[in-house]
Amino acid sequence: MRQLILDIRPDAPPQFDNFLPGQNAEAVDALIRFAGGQAAEPLIYLWGETGSGKSHLLRACTAAVPGGVYRPGAPLPESLPPLLAVDDVDALGPEAQVGLFDLINQAREGAGRIVAAGSLPPARLALRRDLTTRLGWGLVFGLRPLTDQERAAALRSRAAARGMHLPDEVAAYLLNHCRRDLPGLLATLDALDLFSLSRKRAVTLPLLREFLQQSG
């Protein structure tokens, strides 16, 4: 009978010090100063493809500020908290766009700070122009996804944090056979760890193959 696993190890909450900056050191530095209240600019906008770290950084910002609020799109709050993080602005409907517009105006009036994220640079977002120009008015960073080497390093550090031994060939196989966006890779690694625990077998290439076959 297969061992049942009680998953009592919630993943570490997104913070600045568990984010792998890769080529995004400048953006991370700016965000740390922004969250710490050391930046004059009240608005930062991040853009980049899925898995480039936008949501992690947004959550790290709100975690660093008491009263910080993270919203994955609508509904948005009516009045601005000390720090508001708005994720996936691409998906905001007409009403929420006016809401964000209004919140940005409040931020410009000194009521709080906003960090927002989307898949495209401001000028190319399919949103109302008076909103995209306001997003482009702040400090804008394009996030670059990690290189394969950096992804392998991230896998090793996650494995170490889970107390899991990750042989190099397993890491290489994961990078060659699975989707290579970081959240996807890390989720696969976590699932592999649970699989190895439930099977009471060490993490090896054959185990990984078996796991991938079973998880389809």
Partner: peptide
């Protein structure tokens, strides 16, 4: 070219880059 807000945003980006590097 289009508007002053994005123009100022671009300048902020350049200044931040210069400061960081």
């Amino acid at each position: 070219r289009s508007n002053v807000r994005e123009l100022e945003g671009a300048l902020k980006r350049v200044m931040a880059y210069a400061r960081f590097h």
